[in-house]
């Protein structure tokens, strides 16, 4: 008996330790997309960030993560050329309740189209198999139909609909919490109910 699952590699992607020196510049460029900016500056008004701000924020988060042991941040890279695509983050794992909010974000539209679904599977494998979480949830909405559809295809359910809670492109949208349970994931991946 051995562990055969590879958590940090999939067909086209690798999860690596986030490196502020290397990755902050790419992320700063991605923040021109408000859906990306919102994942770096959670409570602020989404706007393009300077490399300095991203680097500072990520360094602080990584430091806090080491101290608190409930924060995870990975750089998502393409295997073939190590190109930085985006991140997987679990900003606050509730260990005693065994659930977590997470985000997979990929900066460029064509990369998102090519790799978001694969990155999502890596996120689920890490959270549900390695961290042993009971459930994971993330947020999305009709303002990003590609992301929402990929979440649904991966087995996520729309669990909460916060009406009129996101503003994009001159319109107000619902914020949808998409959820998956470890049991649902197991049935999907192995066909066996625990």
């Amino acid at each position: 008996m051995t562990f055969t699952t590879q958590l940090f590699q999939s067909e086209n992607l690798v999860l690596e330790a986030y490196d502020p020196e290397k990755d902050a510049a790419a992320e700063a460029a991605f923040t021109y997309d408000p859906n990306y900016a919102a994942v770096i500056d959670w409570e602020g008004v989404p706007h393009p960030l300077t490399v300095f701000e991203v680097k500072k924020k990520r360094e602080e988060e990584l430091k806090k993560g080491v101290e608190k042991d409930n924060f995870f941040l990975f750089a998502l890279r393409r295997k073939s050329d190590s190109q930085f695509l985006g991140i997987l983050t679990l900003p606050h794992v509730f260990w005693f309740n065994r659930y977590a909010f997470f985000k997979v974000v990929i900066g460029e539209a064509e990369m998102r189209q090519a790799y978001f679904a694969e990155a999502l599977q890596m996120a689920l494998r890490y959270g549900l198999e390695e961290l042993g979480l009971y459930s994971m949830h993330t947020t999305s909405g009709e303002y990003e139909p590609d992301v929402k559809q990929a979440l649904e295809a991966a087995g996520f359910r729309a669990a909460v609909r916060q009406r009129e809670n996101v503003y994009r492109e001159g319109k107000i949208w619902d914020r949808i919490f998409m959820e998956i349970l470890q049991d649902e994931w197991k049935i999907q991946t192995t066909g066996v109910q625990s």
Binding site: N97, Y99, A158, Q162
Partner: peptide, 21 residues
């Protein structure tokens, strides 16, 4: 507005986190 399934775990029992607005 919905709920997250069993997010609160106390004494081995899970309770839903209900969202309202």
């Amino acid at each position: 507005e919905g709920h997250l399934n069993g997010n609160l775990l106390k004494a081995g029992v899970r309770y839903d986190e209900v969202f309202m607005g």
